[in-house]
Write a protein that binds this DNA or RNA. Sequence first.
DNA 1: CAGTTCGTTCAGGATTGACTAAACGGTCAA
DNA 2: TTGACCGTTTAGTCAATCCTGAACGAACTG
Lengths: 164, 164
Amino acid sequence: MDTERTASIAGKASGEDQFIEQFARLLEQEGGPRIAGRIAALLLLSAEALPLDEIAERLQASKASISTNARMLEQWGLVERVSHPGDRRDYYRARSDAAVNLLERRLEWMRRLRDVADAGAGSGAAQHPVVRERFATLCRLHSFALRNVERTLRQLRKPDRRRP
Amino acid sequence: MDTERTASIAGKASGEDQFIEQFARLLEQEGGPRIAGRIAALLLLSAEALPLDEIAERLQASKASISTNARMLEQWGLVERVSHPGDRRDYYRARSDAAVNLLERRLEWMRRLRDVADAGAGSGAAQHPVVRERFATLCRLHSFALRNVERTLRQLRKPDRRRP
DNA sequence: CAGTTCGTTCAGGATTGACTAAACGGTCAA
DNA sequence: TTGACCGTTTAGTCAATCCTGAACGAACTG
């Protein structure tokens, strides 16, 4: 028994643990703490909502850390808090539109880059044609990509509206 | 004289300094150190290539830091090192395809997420239909977005092939 | 009311990472 | 060869931040 716990500590990792770790690294690169990524990954793997203390036990982390980071994930739109009748505990589960919101975060970054490039194009140094062309490319390229992905998102979002 | 230096120290910032700072924040969120973003921004603003010591003086940072981070930016494909005849110093300038490579970095992240999601879909927990559907969405959505942007990139890259 | 059982907040501990100053190596000139 | 000039490496400091344990508050139970 207790093979899961020891597996997560030792080098050998189950398929789930492997996914948790890889996903955590990805979200870490996105700017969040590593444990937030682990929570998100665990919830993505779980069909039912999980209570806070169970998450803490499974990930070998303190309840305080889980509480803080789960609420951060809630703000990121990856996770939602649900309550079971007859149970005082808080349950967390992955949002059905988690993938969309994850992608949306990337788009938000690109929008900011586009805006910054747009503002920078009006800067004094942009008198030189070389610089001006540089900023134009930066702006145009990201606008293109943004428009494309946003269009894709709208198309995929429509079928979800059938079951509100 | 010396209004630029004092401007960057005090609160009032010129248009250039404002762009440098905003762009640096963006690249910082991408995972790099803040100074790397500042270097990249400064080079984007400069029509000619800049020598290392000039960058250091302009950004009020040590040459060591500039050296390290400029080479990192070189690996990121945002910046290239050039040498002037009759001058021993190293010059840096923004690459003409910096915007593309910047976008390419975002795509690389999305590819890794897709792959991780793909691998996770084969995990044991994916037996539940809910989880399976979740991973399928994660994978499908990002594949869609990737394909779209990659197609756009190919279209925009073709004109560049004319001058190899 | 006393006693649980939750989640959250807060102060401290430890780790990570960025930046610098100084030493180093390599290249050119006198 | 000596000296000057550049870029890089390295050791060390400083700041940020993540995580935990403990205290706290709120809600329910006996």
